[in-house]
């Protein structure tokens, strides 16, 4: 048996699997609930409401500048909880491993997950491992589910945007998607574009402390800012106006998008939050965001209007106006 590669019998439930779990997962995620090794984790819940979510991670490549599939699997689920104003508490982690995956890669991913969980203040309290024959999965897939507690008085949801609200974002758009695309396709620009992959619960807490009346929080992951804002416009029955000159973009991301013919509004983010905030609270939220390490380049990039319900429009730099539609299919580089 090659100790360097994941073997099929490590997913079979027998000794080999126990050894893998002991050696890798239990030590990395070490916490009392997990080390009980029971069929499920049992814990007390604080009073009030719980938030629960799940997401699966199948990213290629599994390591990319600024993160990896492990940190992403923690951040993505933590962020989905935080977007409802919940304080994330516990995660589960399910691994589907492809036979032949280097154990070293798995160790790196698990260590990164553990570090991400520690930083986000959540515990991985239950898990599962399967190994599938070579070719039946691509290296490894991870599913995480999460539970969080929503403090009393928080009511944040996609249908709460109102005309007059402002649209805030905590920094530049498109960083994650371009980092992954460039890495996957071997596109080399002057510097590696870094993914923005990060847990946003700390930032969100600070924003809500500054102003509790935030209407909507949502992370513009796949489909990008454009798709997320279209979802909000539809759910809330409002129109959204963006200002082109206000869109925060890194030069390297913009450059890569220009070369490939991609629109950064449709490129994925993994450490960004769109906040829809009543105008009266916007300044307080903005300065709270700017005071946090993950919100230094926060800005106001648009407004909610009553015209054109369900649509997102962009006021261009030269004074024109166009639709910003939802992403349809996949964004593809232009041909010529």
């Amino acid at each position: 048996m090659d100790p360097g590669l994941v073997q099929l019998d490590q997913g079979s439930g027998g000794r080999a699997m126990h050894e893998l779990i002991d050696a890798l997962f239990l030590s990395a995620f070490d916490n009392p609930l997990l080390s009980e090794r029971n069929d499920s984790a049992v814990f007390d819940i604080p009073g009030g409401r719980l938030a629960m979510t799940t997401d699966s991670y199948v990213i290629d490549p599994i390591f990319f500048p600024g993160g990896d599939i492990g940190s992403l699997a923690v951040h993505g689920t933590v962020n989905d909880l935080a977007m409802r104003g919940a304080r994330p508490l516990y995660l589960t982690a399910g691994f589907i491993l492809e036979e032949g995956l280097p154990v070293g890669d798995l160790q790196r991913v698990v260590a990164s997950m553990a570090e991400a969980a520690r930083k986000a203040g959540v515990q991985v309290v239950a898990g599962d491992t399967k190994v599938v024959p070579r070719g039946k999965a691509d290296k490894l897939f991870i599913n995480t589910a999460g539970i969080g507690m929503v403090p009393a008085g928080r009511d944040i949801a996609g249908d709460k945007a109102r005309a007059g609200d402002l649209v805030l974002i905590n920094g530049t758009i498109g960083d994650h998607g371009m980092a992954v695309l460039c890495k996957r396709e071997g596109l080399a620009f002057e510097n590696d574009i870094q993914s923005d992959c990060a847990a946003l619960n700390g930032l969100i807490e600070r924003m809500l402390e500054a102003f509790g009346g935030i209407h909507v929080l949502r992370d513009p992951t796949r489909g990008g800012v454009a798709t997320t804002l279209n979802e909000i416009a539809e759910q809330s029955g409002v129109g959204i106006r963006l200002f082109e000159e206000a869109l925060p973009l890194r030069d390297d991301v913009l450059g890569a998008c220009e070369v490939l013919g991609l629109d950064p509004l449709y490129v994925a983010n993994e450490g960004k939050v769109l906040a829809i905030v009543p105008a009266g609270g916007a300044e307080a939220v903005l300065s709270a965001m700017k005071s946090h390490p993950l919100g230094k380049s926060s800005c106001i990039m648009g407004e909610i209007v009553s015209d054109d319900p369900g649509r997102v429009l962009l006021r261009t730099r030269i004074g024109g106006c166009r639709i910003v539609d939802m992403l349809r299919g996949e964004q593809l580089p232009r041909i010529c």
């Binding site: 030269i318 024109g320 166009r322 232009r334 041909i335």
Partner: peptide
């Protein structure tokens, strides 16, 4: 086709005087 998209993305069409009509031609390879 790249011009067509650039014209739409900047919202240029509506900013031109009505006498100027921009027509898209056969320049999208697909």
């Amino acid at each position: 086709g790249t011009h067509t998209v650039a014209i739409f993305r900047s919202g240029l069409k509506e900013l031109l005087p009505p006498q100027i009509r921009l027509i898209s031609g056969p320049g999208c390879p697909v």
